[in-house]
Design a protein around this nucleic acid. Structure first.
Lengths: 233, 233
DNA sequence: TTAAAAACATGATTTGCGTCAGTTATCCTA
DNA sequence: TAGGATAACTGACGCAAATCATGTTTTTAA
């Protein structure tokens, strides 16, 4: 049986694949970026960027975990979880889209580096390698969003939750056992279901020997089983 | 009362905002692109690009209308409608993502230009303006997908359908009255509901004086009313 | 250390919407 | 222009999952 962390799951990936675009910069350019770069720490729950406000800086998550979500009519939809290495605010690169298109808040204490968006724009114009790397990041994010999109619209509760659990294990915590710094309510929000349903479904998974959980500590027992649930339910 | 075509709807936009990235090319570069460029015509229903096959070319829709959808487990999810000016296959730009991430098929007879993906990759590396324009396209597509994502997950049938109708009127046909070259079944697929529900809901809209329809000819009577339905239901 | 507030849990009830089954209308094509 | 096929439509039924109601445990803060 393969380990969760090794499974190349077909389902929705909630984290960004990190592309180290800044590696493609020349020494001068790196200097330019770092000169004006500021590091900020956010406490759990704090808002890092608010949808609709002007994007003066792109955010690079250097530590922690952030929730990126789209808001409309006082309802919200989690687009992705930004892990260290993720960039937030890239969708504001077009000059006519100069406000944040989503809100980002800290799941846990999170450290973020602020990089002037105009510098990024300039680098895209002048450094082809960098531009190409940014394009790659945007594409990967898009691909991953399609998967999540599919997961939330075409699966029912069991499948959705199984998917999220596998995803958390393999993409975020990178091990079968982890302490989820997330309430049932937040887990429900992430999987697009009600809190009560999450609780019931988790219990079911436990009874079926798929997972083991004590409070917030999760242990994936049967990743293949969970995977099957994903595909069927 | 504002016309549908003028409404800056908050809801999901199904078409791509065209960015004429090729305008930023030098004469030489344009030549390079056009030299190897091939034009292909697809008949209604034909598959233009199949998810999972190698992306050797980027597709530029020059006439017609294409459906872009993600497939998994014999189920499919429409990501967007590609109108003239839209590019298909950009998500295959990263070298490790060299297969189509979605399928595209022709809603109606559609003409497509094939441009070698390696040429696009080279242009991104060498022409900053072009790279920046590609980034813009990717960002706009992403923003639009978020809206559609929200629409399909957070609204119920009435809202979803109202949204799609407004979107078709304002973004695709650009007028309040249009002949939909789409069966009820396809409309259902697009709005993520069952064919029967679409029929019932359309009837409801008609009874409420929001739209008028005879067969496939749609007429939006009360865009503001539809818009309200979007936000409530 | 205790009160208040979250978070967790679970059973009962409701409902939106998909599925099914059957009818009518419309489109082809031979 | 007849008749077969596909699409459009309608009503009845069932179910997944949200909501509601209520109780229990854990966490937070005073």
């Amino acid at each position: 049986m393969q380990k969760t962390a090794e499974r190349n799951t077909l389902s929705c990936t909630v984290v960004n694949v990190n592309k180290y675009c800044f590696n493609f910069l020349t020494e001068e350019e790196k200097e330019l970026v770092e000169q004006k770069q500021v590091t900020v720490e956010y406490k759990k729950g704090e808002i890092i960027a608010k949808q609709g406000t002007f994007t003066t800086h792109i955010l690079l998550v250097s530590e922690g975990l952030a929730k990126v979500y789209y808001e409309e009519n006082y309802k919200s939809l989690i687009l992705r979880i930004a892990a260290p290495g993720s960039l937030i605010g890239l969708t504001s690169l077009p000059l006519n889209q100069n406000v944040f298109q989503y809100t980002a808040s800290a799941y846990i204490n999170t450290t973020v580096k602020l990089i002037e968006i105009d510098i990024i724009r300039k680098l895209i114009l002048n450094n082809g390698q960098f531009a190409s790397a940014i394009v790659d990041v945007l594409c990967e994010t898009s691909i991953q969003k399609n998967r999540r999109f599919f997961c939330l619209t075409h699966r029912q509760s069991y499948g959705k939750l199984a998917d999220i659990i596998l995803c958390l294990a393999s993409n975020i915590f990178k091990q079968d056992e982890f302490d989820l710094a997330m309430s049932r309510k937040e887990l429900a929000e992430l999987s697009g279901m009600s809190t009560e349903s999450v609780i019931r479904t988790l219990k079911h998974f436990q009874e079926d020997g798929l997972i083991e959980l004590t409070g917030k500590s999760f242990k994936v027992i049967d990743p293949d089983g969970l995977y099957k649930v994903c595909q069927l339910g």
